[in-house]
Every structure is written in C-alpha cells, then in structure tokens.
Design a protein around this nucleic acid. Sequence first.
DNA 1: CCGTATCCGACTTGATACTG
DNA 2: CAGTATCAAGTCGGATACGG
Lengths: 119, 119
Amino acid sequence: MHPDCTVYKTAQYLTKKWALLVLFELYKGDDYTRRFSELKDSLGVITSKVLSQRLRELEEEGLVGRRVDAEHFPIKSEYFLTEAGLGLIDVIKHLKQWALTYKIDNIDCQCQNCRDCIL
Amino acid sequence: MHPDCTVYKTAQYLTKKWALLVLFELYKGDDYTRRFSELKDSLGVITSKVLSQRLRELEEEGLVGRRVDAEHFPIKSEYFLTEAGLGLIDVIKHLKQWALTYKIDNIDCQCQNCRDCIL
DNA sequence: CCGTATCCGACTTGATACTG
DNA sequence: CAGTATCAAGTCGGATACGG
C-alpha cells in the first residue's frame, strides 16, 4: 500500500468528486459513449472545469477513451469506456453487492435506489 | 450516485489517507486484531491524530470493532476487523485482480509487489 | 499507552468569465 | 460545442504539544 500501489492509486482518483458518476454516465450510453455536453447536462451541476479534469484523469489512467471531430464546427468530442473501464465497473458491482449485504439500511439514493440502479 | 449512495460513501472514506493500510494491518493480525500502538508502529510515519481519526471512521462504518481494557494501567485498546470489514477486503481483492489485468505495468510497490502482497 | 487540541500549509472544488 | 484561466472557500493531513 505504498503510494505507487495500483490499488491505492486507483482508489485515489476514483473517489475524486464526480469521477464515479462520470463512469456511470458513460456506462449508460450507447456503446458506452457520451458527448461532453451530454455528460455535463446529465450530471447537472458539475462545472466544465471539473468535468474536463475528471475526463483527463480517467483518460490518462486508460479507463476512458476520446474521439474528437475537429473537422466540422462546432467541435464534437465523444468519450467512451475502454475495456479497462468496463472491468472496473464490474469491480464496483462487487462493491455494491457488499453494500447490499452489510449496508442495507443506508442504501437509499435520492434519484435512484441502489437495488434498481444500473449496478 | 447521490452523495448518500453507499458505494459513493464507501469510496469516500476508504480513500482517505491511511484508511486502506489500516484495514490491511488488521487483516494481517492474529484474529484480524491489532493494538493501537502496533498499528502506529507498523504504519511508520502516521500520526496519532490521523490514526485515531481513521479508526473512528471505520468503526462508525462498522468495518472495525474496538475492545478497551481500561481496568489496568496503561490502558490497552484492541481493534479488529468485523465481518463487514472482512467482506470489504474481498472486494479489494477483486480490485487487485483488475489491476493485475489492466495495470500490470504500474504495480511496483516499494516494500511489496502487488503480485505477492496479502491481497 | 492511548489518545485529544490547536495551528498551519497544501490541495481541491466551485463560481465566474472568456475563447477557438 | 468544448473547453481554459483565475480566484475564493472549504477540507485534509502533518507537526507539535499536552492529558488521563
């Protein structure tokens, strides 16, 4: 669990604000893909700055890929889950199962109930 | 992924500094148990304040239990993993498997290699 | 031995404004 | 549309000192 340990590092960027939510939005998209503005709209009150930061971090870590169409205006950017990103979603599903076993009393979310959510 | 979502909340306190390492130290102990001073010594440079904070948080979340012997002096405190805490170790093992699959190039820890570590 | 209290610097986020 | 720049506010951990 040295700072360079992958488990530790992964946990670090996954718990930055909005990071998990960004992954889930991509997970819900067709082909696990979403445009920048779609992410921003569905996440609600996130700022462009933070969304951009999170996407950059997730891209550097290989969880998210990016396609940019700069030939036409306005520019369109698409982000998508990589295979590694999808693998991580599976890990989070295990975390959810743990939560359903041991944290059954706190699992109420405002907009969706954990039992029914995409995980 | 509302702030009250258990997955989100769990990720929040697990990635606080030293939290995972505290769990692993307990995991390595006989009966998954360690004294306060043993934790402090094996973690090296952690301060009492932060160790105490992490233990309190993990206790509140039901991952760690505490036994205090205040009858004799000096006081002795023992901390141990609960069933929920052990369950979470399993989830982290899944995370490690993900890391071994997709992050094979970064898995060098200073004091231990992920391939051989307790996970 | 097992903590708590206080101060302080570093880092993170949000608000706002602006650009190709 | 897809970002970047700047600044203010809040949060966290480390150092230090102290107490039952």
